[in-house]
Simulated assay, not measured.
Amino acid sequence: MRLGTFLQYAGDAVRTVDQAVALEQAGLDAVWVAEAYGFDAPTLMGYLAARTERVLIGSAILPIYTRTPALIAQTAAGLDAVSGGRALLGLGASGPQVIEGWHGVRYDRPLARTREIIDLCRRMWRREVITNDGIYQLPYPGGTGLGKPLKMLTKPVRDEIPVYVAALGDKNVELTAEIADGWLPILFLPEKAKSVWGKALDAGRARRTRGPLDVVASGLLAIGEDVTGLRELARANVALYVGGMGARGRNFYNDLMRRYGYEAEAATIQDLYLAGRKEEAAAAVPAEFLELTALVGPAGHVKERLEAFREAGVTMLNVTPVGPDPIGDVRTLREWMG
């Protein structure tokens, strides 16, 4: 099992990269950079590449509607070049709120679009001369008529950059297990993962022609006898996703919470959040959920949670250190992971 973390995109970006550098020295294997509707991810990823020596650097995620397939391929290849082959390309559909509200792009055909973009990126990294007749028409048929099939001008460091997909719904998870190199779930509860996603993962893997699927899950990290209260730091973020990241009936995270068995709690969190009562929504997040999705508590408890993630098939554990000694906690966890 490898060890990663998310670069916090809110606040002082330079300062958070400083922490990532220190965590690399403590044994971290990967750093992932989010992109919502704040700073873009590739700028911070390039800065990370300049400041680090060994860690893998991934996007988590680049929304597929915000860039052409060619730009996605170019961005990943550029990062791979300046990092010496350390790039991980994390992609996801995001949701209608951000895609239509912030980017002004229609949210449609997420599964077909994901499949097509991944195929195009891989062909572009192999420097094939690109034509495509699908969602993306290459060369574009409705313009001047001067477009021509092209291949990537520069030679990528690798012709296979690992592609990870953020997926929650059954069809998207099945697609991910079929064609991606890795899966980026969110709000991952190890004990419920098989019952929620097992059939979709099995169906996708049955058609898989690539190597083993990397499974990346995340949680807060704090090791100590008196740190249990730090689990509460996740409340507001869980409430944001379950309550506010999507409209009623179109919130993927709320659906996930319901599938975990927290139907009433998911409904309450959404009702409160959409009514503007965000603190009450956070308070409604089940304490059990916070405990099972984090690695926070005495050493024995954290070891148990580590094994739960391992048994659930997680191959990369992304932690957000929140304890008084983040470097020490990462170093300790790295030792336990072997």
Rank of each mutant, 00 (worst) to 15 (best):
G38H: 11
L28R: 02
G38N: 13
E35H: 02
A30Y: 00
V21E: 11
V21R: 08
A26Q: 06
L7P: 02
L23N: 03
A10I: 10
D40Y: 06
R15N: 09
A34T: 13
T16N: 15
V21D: 03
W32G: 04
A20N: 12
Q25V: 04
T16K: 11
V33F: 01
A30P: 00
T5N: 04
A22R: 15
G38K: 07
V21Q: 07
G27E: 01
A13Q: 11
A26D: 04
F6K: 02
F39C: 07
G38T: 13
Y37P: 00
G38R: 10
G11V: 07
V17E: 03
L23K: 00
A34V: 08
F39Y: 13
A13E: 10
G38L: 15
L28M: 12
W32A: 05
F6A: 09
V21T: 06
F6T: 08
T16S: 10
Q19R: 14
T16H: 15
A34Y: 07
Y9T: 14
A34M: 11
A13K: 05
A10Y: 14
A34K: 06
Q19T: 11
D18Y: 05
A13F: 01
G38E: 08
A30I: 02
Q19K: 08
G27K: 01
E24L: 03
F39W: 13
Q19N: 12
A26H: 05
A36L: 09
Q8D: 14
A36W: 08
D40K: 03
A10P: 00
R15S: 15
L7V: 04
D40W: 00
A10L: 13
Q8A: 11
Q19L: 14
W32R: 01
E35M: 08
F39H: 12
T5C: 14
E24W: 02
L7M: 10
W32I: 01
F6V: 07
F39Q: 08
A30F: 00
Q19M: 13
Q25D: 15
F6Q: 06
V33K: 04
V21H: 02
V14W: 11
E24Q: 05
W32T: 01
L28W: 02
L7T: 06
A34L: 10
Q8V: 10
D29G: 04
A22D: 12
G11C: 07
G27Y: 00
F6D: 03
D40Q: 13
Y9L: 12
F6E: 08
G27C: 01
V31F: 00
L7H: 12
F6N: 10
D40R: 08
V31T: 10
Q19E: 15
V21G: 06
D12Q: 09
Y37F: 15
F6P: 00
Y9A: 10
A22N: 02
D18L: 03
Y9K: 07
Y37N: 12
L28V: 05
F39N: 13
F6R: 05
G11N: 09
D12F: 05
T16D: 14
R15P: 03
G11D: 09
E35Y: 03
Y9S: 15
F6G: 03
E24P: 12
R15L: 12
Q8K: 14
F6M: 11
V31S: 02
V17G: 01
Y9W: 13
T5A: 15
A13L: 12
D29T: 05
A20Q: 09
G27V: 04
Q8C: 07
A30H: 03
A36K: 03
V33E: 00
